[in-house]
């Protein structure tokens, strides 16, 4: 695997593109939701309302950055930074096109899982340090939800790892030259998609910040750019999960005619639109339903998927001579 000769350029390229996409998603989500709900959405500032994001950003940067006097100040400040750090670190191992990857890590898949499990601290600590009952309830929900869905999130992609025979994301893409893993691992694909929505705390799994019951959940007390970091962190999370699904199940950059990077961005973009469509169309479950669903349906399915895939891999490997 060839690594780009300009590592610093790659790092900044990935950083800037990821942050720009996350910011652009704020506009895209509002426009798409509006389209599906038969209204216009932001359409006044600039062409197609594109500068709305800029206006929002200027507003959020100049807002008073208020820390509640009853909060645990250090943790209150650190919490929003954790989500940004963990998500942006995960982008480091994503292969975007041949040769464009910040770190071609051998345990790339596990690295992303590790970072996503550290992301739980952000919401849990944010809710705890706010010292507010709604925040605490949101944080409790977030911690329980993310912990439960992480378990089968990891298990659901082990089928892909078995088939590719590697934790390395570049080798996983290379293993999909003949057939995308979405076909042999369709169950794993569906499980990972659901776990991904739950990990990014998007609707229908946005119970940690359910407005109708918890004000704004774990970030009720946050304002200004600290709130902005949770906000951008969520969109970065969507981008990350979408590109991860594209890499693990849809062949990453593989595709005919068009250049590899275009294929990768196209697949990621379509998955992001699907995430937004989910928000536009699905209602929120109750929290006990969410937990039951995770532990009693998804986890056994993920284990069964892993066992069957493992059995098939072992059976076909014994047929070969080695």
């Amino acid at each position: 695997m060839m690594i780009s000769p300009y590592p610093v350029a790659t790092i900044f390229g990935v950083l800037i593109v990821a942050l720009t996409i996350a910011a652009g998603l704020i506009w895209l989500e509002r426009r798409l939701l509006a389209l599906w709900q038969d209204r216009y959405g932001p359409n006044r500032v600039g062409p197609f309302g594109l500068f709305q994001v800029m206006a929002d950003m200027i507003k959020i940067f100049f807002k008073e950055d208020w820390i509640p006097p009853f909060a645990d100040k250090t943790i209150f400040v650190i919490a929003p930074a954790i989500i940004m750090v963990t998500v942006l670190m995960s982008f480091a191992v994503l292969p975007i096109a041949p040769g464009i990857v910040v770190s071609d890590l051998n345990v790339g898949v596990l690295f992303i899982l590790a970072m996503s499990s550290l992301g739980v601290y952000s919401v849990a600590l944010a809710g705890w340090s706010s010292d507010n009952k709604y925040s605490l309830l949101g944080a409790l929900r977030a911690a329980a939800q993310m912990l439960s869905y992480e378990v089968f999130m990891g298990l659901s992609i082990m089928g892909v790892v078995l088939l590719a025979g590697s934790f390395n994301l570049v080798q996983i893409i290379d293993a999909q030259r003949g057939l995308w893993f979405v076909i042999p691992q369709f169950l794993g694909f569906v499980l990972f998609l659901i776990a991904g929505v739950a990990e990014t705390r998007r609707l229908p799994f946005d119970l940690p910040e359910a407005e109708s019951e918890l004000v704004a959940g774990f970030h009720s007390e946050y304002s200004g750019m600290k709130f902005g970091m949770f906000f951008v962190g969520e969109y970065l999370g969507i981008t990350l999960i979408s590109s991860l699904i594209a890499i693990l199940f849809l062949g990453g950059w593989l595709g005919p005619i068009l250049p590899p990077i275009v294929w990768f961005l196209l697949k990621t973009f379509l998955l992001i639109c699907f995430f937004i469509l989910l928000r536009a169309s699905l209602p929120r479950p109750r929290f006990d339903q969410l937990m039951t669903w995770g532990w009693k349906v998804m986890l056994p399915l993920a284990v069964a998927n892993l066992l069957v895939t493992g059995a098939i891999v072992v059976a076909t490997a014994q047929g070969r001579s080695f």
Binding site: L110, L113, A114, S117, L118, V120, Y121, A124, L125, G127, W128, L136, A139, L140, A143, A144, L147, E150, G154
Partner: peptide, 19 residues
């Protein structure tokens, strides 16, 4: 594995109880 199991799972449970 250290990050996933200890930092990511077990310690989150500790924080959960502490909350």
């Amino acid at each position: 594995l250290e990050v996933i199991v200890y930092a990511g799972a077990i310690m989150v449970l500790f924080v959960f109880v502490m909350m």
